[in-house]
């Protein structure tokens, strides 16, 4: 295809991505180094006869509005926002390092800082949910594959539901059941033998709840991909393994899993990216007291009456850097594939 033809074919989609993905990234980066203007103060001296003169400092509304309109971006502050308490908190981390005797104490202090707390949950969620959902998805795929063919279709239908359903809605549905008055919640209360038992009460339980949701939501994806992979499993290799006396477990370990390995990599990479953006469950489970994620911090800064664009932008840039680090193995792999062609 000629360059010219390619250009016209690609123009609409390229323009859409340039205007609404590439430019916003630039805009986010710029906003993250600007802070909102501070209010302009003016000092007025009021002199009344007999009483004397008092000076009073007030906000000059007109001047403040003028400067805000003249420079809507705000004032340039460099990397200050990145380093403040809400983000990388360099000073606070330094103090915590100096003040705490042990590593545990340091980590405790670190988790009082919003960004590190969110980062801890986001990374824990990502790196626990992803392997769990792969193992669980593989187990479902192996089990469903051995079923009668009519049942297979039915199982695939119901298995797709947790994945297809809107994440916020899915987490709400589970949240209402896990609520201490819901059906699973009251069962847990009965099991724990403690009438005040609640999954929302402690950080650990909240994290477990969110991780269970994460596996429930994403395991169907792994299942569907692995199930499709199992359909292309070469039967002669299985038969050869059987003739060699391999047990069922050995067949899975040495024939099935290696056959599915490229798919495992694929699922792992996709799910790492998707779990890193965990956000809706935190809202749905109303869990922000115990678990916040990077995306949730951005959302929280942007919402409400005061839209803290600069703070949200700085967190966005840090999140994008995190995604880039996670994505680097994929990029390297794609590059190798491309070179190999």
């Amino acid at each position: 295809m000629k360059h010219r033809t390619f250009f016209w074919f690609f123009l609409p989609t390229g323009l859409a991505m340039l205007l609404f993905i590439a430019l916003p990234i630039v805009s986010v980066v710029i906003q993250s180094v600007y802070a909102p203007h501070e209010a302009v103060l003016k000092t007025v001296e009021n002199c009344t006869p007999l009483v004397g003169c008092t000076t009073e400092t007030t906000i000059d509304q007109d001047a403040t509005r003028d400067i805000r309109e003249a420079q809507p971006l705000g004032r340039f502050v460099g990397l200050d926002i990145y380093l403040d308490r809400g983000h990388l908190a360099v000073t606070e981390v330094g103090e915590a390092w100096a003040a705490s005797a042990s590593m545990g104490g340091f980590i405790d202090r670190l988790f009082n800082l919003p960004l590190y707390r969110a980062l801890a949950f986001t990374l824990t969620f990502t790196f626990i949910v992803t392997p769990l959902l792969i193992v669980f998805g593989l187990m479902i795929a192996l089990a469903v594959n051995s079923l009668h063919s009519r049942l297979k279709g039915l199982m695939i239908f119901f298995s797709l539901l947790p994945m297809i359903v809107t994440p916020l809605i899915g987490s709400l549905i589970l949240f209402w059941m896990v609520d201490s008055r819901g059906v699973i919640g009251s069962a847990l209360v009965a099991l724990a033998g403690d009438p005040d038992f609640s999954m929302k009460a402690s950080t650990g339980l909240t994290w477990i709840m969110l991780i269970v949701y994460g596996v429930w939501h994403s395991a169907p994806f792994a299942f569907v991909v692995f199930y499709a992979g199992l359909q292309t499993l070469p039967q002669d290799q299985i038969e050869a393994a059987q003739i060699d006396g391999a047990t069922r477990w050995q067949q899975i370990k040495y024939v099935v899993v290696p056959h599915l390995m490229p798919l495992v990599t694929f699922v792992a990479l996709i799910q790492l990216m998707d779990n890193f953006r965990v956000f809706e469950p935190v809202v749905g489970f109303n869990a922000s007291a115990h678990a916040t994620s990077l995306s949730w911090i951005i959302f929280n800064d942007l919402g409400g009456e005061t839209r803290q664009l600069s703070a949200a932008s700085a967190t966005s840039v840090l999140t994008i850097i995190g995604v880039a680090i996670l994505l680097s193995p994929v990029l390297v792999r794609t590059w190798r594939d491309f070179k190999g062609k």
Partner: peptide
């Protein structure tokens, strides 16, 4: 590759860039 990178980014990170 650019599209892949864009696909990996959480959409919420772009919202701050849209609002202003």
């Amino acid at each position: 590759i650019t599209a892949l990178i864009f696909r990996a980014m959480p959409p919420i990170t772009l919202v701050a860039g849209y609002l202003l």
